[in-house]
């Protein structure tokens, strides 16, 4: 397929919610420095797959390897420790907290046992500036007061605040306007160019072909194929998403 040791490798992962068998033996490979797009129809299991990677709904079965070694990810702390950051589809922000506290949620910096508000605020500001976020006037605003796009930015900023190895974004552009979408896609590309692994979930194939290096197609809880973007076409991907079959000659 492509060069580089895989950052993340899933083999045959399974996940059920009660009687619903959502993931039925899914394989996924994410390489550093590449954007892997994860596509599939509504309910295909994309969000469930990344929640398993993040450890908030651990997989029932299957192999999970990170940087070549088998790991056990059973809680968000485990995935954070590996350097995996996730921007969830529903953003997972606390409306009653300000931007700073949301960005450091669960990982607040302390000095002498006291939350170090100043350093946190300065670093939050820095990170947001690094993402060239212009619309946020104060990082002390409560998240409830932000627009959909601003909330999205906060969620993304939270993911890049830490020295992450793998950033997963679940439909990060769904709520964004044209200019903001463009910014997020540029950011996604920048992260990969910095050598991080990036997984991008999106329903917008224009976006996918614009930034992705690899495309993984999920169909009803099964991985149809993972292919290089340059070797396939939009029509073939659409067919794979809707029928669950990829035309001959595309599979890598």
């Amino acid at each position: 397929m492509s060069s580089g040791e895989p950052l993340l490798e899933l083999r045959g992962v399974q996940k059920s919610f009660g009687a619903v068998h959502v993931l039925q033996g899914v394989d996924l490979t994410v390489r550093p420095g590449r954007v892997t797009a994860l596509v599939g129809d509504n309910g295909a299991g994309k969000s469930t797959l990344i929640k398993g990677i993040a450890g908030i709904h651990p997989f029932d079965e299957g192999d999970y390897a990170f940087e070549g070694g088998a790991v056990h990810v059973k809680s968000p702390r485990d995935s954070n420790a590996l350097g995996i950051e996730v921007v969830y589809q529903d953003l997972a922000l606390c409306d009653n907290l300000d931007v700073v506290h949301n960005m450091f949620l669960g990982r607040e910096l302390t000095k002498n046992g006291v939350v170090d508000e100043d350093t946190m605020e300065a670093r939050a500001r820095e990170t947001l500036d690094g993402l060239s976020v212009r619309t946020l006037t104060s990082v002390r605003t409560h998240v409830a007061a932000l627009s959909g796009g601003q909330r999205q930015t906060v969620a993304i900023a939270r993911a890049v605040l830490w020295n992450s190895r793998l950033v997963i974004l679940d439909e990060p552009t769904a709520a964004l306007g044209v200019a903001q979408t463009e910014q997020v896609l540029k950011l996604v590309r920048r992260l990969a160019d910095r050598g991080l692994g990036v997984v991008l979930i999106s329903h917008n194939l224009n976006e996918v072909f614009q930034v992705a290096d690899d495309i993984a197609v999920l169909y009803l809880g099964q991985m149809v194929a993972q292919v290089e973007a340059s070797t396939t076409s939009r029509e073939r991907v659409v067919a794979a998403i809707t029928t669950g079959k990829l035309n001959e000659g595309d599979a890598a």
Binding site: P76, A92, L93, D95, N96, G106, V115
Partner: peptide, 21 residues
Amino acid sequence: TKWGSHVYAVGGNAEAARRAG
């Protein structure tokens, strides 16, 4: 304290708090 911040986080959005570890 960190604990205090977590109290507000859980009160605001328990699922987000859980996902944040």
